[in-house]
Design a protein around this nucleic acid. Structure first.
Lengths: 125, 125
DNA sequence: GTCGTTGCAAAGCGTTTGCAGCCTA
DNA sequence: TAGGCTGCAAACGCTTTGCAACGAC
């Protein structure tokens, strides 16, 4: 049976407090604010557990380590800021991807990743 | 000055013969058909050289190692087959991604990855 | 007290680098 | 012949795993 340790609680709260996909390094940094000396292996193990039990979803963007976000957000995509490297949710979705499928191919899923500057970084630069 | 070795020639021909993005493992296998004993380090070094000189483009799909393809194909996207793990080009592009950008964000690029079964795998299953 | 969980360190795995010898120009 | 290129093996960075100690229930 699953136990509620300080470490797991801190990791859960890291996701609940920042409502965007987080990488393992971000989770480690955030959770270490609560639990000093938290090990990176514990972060990896808990993320895996939380994904397995359906509490987290894996967000795979091109060219980087996976990030994770709270499950149950419905269909959405992501915006990657090239300045701060953070990832944000994009709730609307252009539904016209079906027109792109070549003949004979069977479309099962699609992924759209936008890139550029987030509002914060766009305001600074 | 750059030299034309058997190894580099074999790697170039691997891309020219198969007109789709290739991973390092695919390149190694294809080029070893020509050059026995070809080392994986040579594949990595040559791919880097060919990308640097603009002969290859890097194709970064979510959740996997990068793949590479001949440069100069213009704007296009990719279809990843979940059965054979190969990647194919998709030439058409739904232009409606601009409507998805949140207020304040600056859109610089977008990436669309379709997933499902390629024509070949769809015919088998 | 049990046994799931943790931190540390070692092991894996794909990619990169150092180096001596090779081979293209 | 010079120096770019190659294959091998070691190094690297990130992730996973083994293990003894810890602590939630």
């Amino acid at each position: 049976m699953e136990r509620n340790t300080r470490q797991r609680g801190a990791i859960r709260r890291a996701f609940q407090r920042t409502n965007r996909p987080l990488g393992t390094d971000e989770v480690l940094e955030l959770a270490r604010g609560e639990v000093n000396g938290l090990g990176i292996a514990t972060v990896y193990r808990n993320i895996r557990t939380l994904v397995d039990e359906g509490w987290l979803d894996t967000v795979q963007l091109p060219g980087g380590s996976p990030r994770y976000e709270l499950r149950g957000k419905g269909h959405h995509h992501h915006f990657h800021c090239s300045h701060c490297d953070r990832v944000f949710d994009v709730t609307s979705c252009s539904g016209s991807v079906h027109t792109m499928v070549p003949p004979g191919f069977v479309l099962e899923r699609h992924l759209i990743v936008l890139g550029g500057l987030c509002a914060e970084c766009a305001a600074i630069t």
